[in-house]
């Protein structure tokens, strides 16, 4: 199928600003799904609130646009009741790690087979450019007019610490390798976190001396490096990208099947007795 077969053209044009990275992520996500050959009716995409979350409306899957920060909780309900479905949760940085941080770490701890894609643009875009948990120290935002004094989270370290069994980072500049990473994340049996650095030229770029979206993409090119590269040894400030963890661990829905077997004395597959 073509990319357009996965989108709801009826609901275009989308709301994202010119130069926004989120469309690139949507494109890579569609291509990953296409490559994996998963049927559209077997996919549920669940989002929270923010620019990122509007992705739901545009995709021709079962889509659930929920409330701020709680997308993973809704996803837990969908996945646990229908484990055979592929559940993907695109989230913004604030959605995933500020208001929704609790659900992210607990989803990771449970290792429920859901793919969390963090569309990380270091800013609250929908509300007009306030600092987020990934805004760097010193960056400007409408709520940090004198520079941000909060320290940012390293989402990869946080996801690893919480026990996510698949953790990766990529950027919108690396759209092609993003497809491969998303394929692996979606296929991974367990909780996957993919931190995707995504440019917000309108609110982050404009305030922080990026002249254009292209400059932001160039930044992702020059300031990131593959995991364990020589460049990283020379310049520790570079941000590593690639797959940080890919481990086989007991998955929550599979474990729950065992509970049903124990309680009901009957054989269970994919949650069905």
């Amino acid at each position: 199928m073509a990319v357009k077969d996965y989108i709801r053209e009826r609901f275009f044009p989308h709301i994202w600003c010119p130069g926004c990275g989120h469309g690139t992520i949507m494109g890579s996500m569609i291509r990953a799904i296409e490559n994996l050959g998963i049927k559209k009716s077997d996919i549920v995409v669940i989002s929270g609130i923010g620019c990122s979350s509007r992705i739901c409306g545009y995709l021709d899957f079962h889509t659930l646009h929920t409330i701020h920060g709680r997308a993973l909780a809704f996803a837990t309900g969908v996945k646990l009741s229908r484990p055979e479905l592929t559940v993907i949760v695109p989230m913004g940085d604030g959605d995933a790690f500020a208001i929704g941080g609790n659900h992210l770490i607990h989803s990771a701890r449970r290792n429920i087979d859901v793919t969390a894609i963090i569309m990380n643009n270091n800013i609250y875009g929908m509300t007009g450019g306030q600092y987020s948990p990934s805004t760097r120290y010193g960056d400007l935002a409408t709520t940090a007019p004198y520079g941000n004094i909060d320290q940012p989270f390293d989402f990869v370290k946080l996801a690893l610490g919480a026990g996510a069994s698949f953790v990766a980072r990529t950027t919108t500049y690396h759209a092609t390798s993003m497809i491969k990473i998303l394929e692996k994340a979606i296929t991974h049996k367990g909780f996957s976190v993919v931190d995707v650095l995504s440019q917000c030229p309108t609110y982050f770029g404009r305030k922080n001396k990026f002249a254009s979206p292209v400059d932001m993409l160039k930044y992702y090119k020059s300031q990131t490096t593959p995991i364990g590269s020589e460049a990283k040894e020379k310049n520790p400030d570079l941000i590593e990208r690639g797959i940080f963890a890919q481990e086989e661990r007991p998955e929550y829905c599979v474990e729950y099947d065992k509970i049903i077997e124990k309680a009901s004395q009957r054989k269970v597959t994919n949650g069905k007795v």
């Binding site: 669940i46 659930l64 709680r70 909780a73 809704f74 309900g77 969908v78 009741s81 229908r82």
Partner: peptide, 10 residues
């Protein structure tokens, strides 16, 4: 939130 997600699956 979780029960709402589950309800939507029927």
């Amino acid at each position: 939130c979780t029960i709402i997600g589950a309800s939507l699956t029927g």
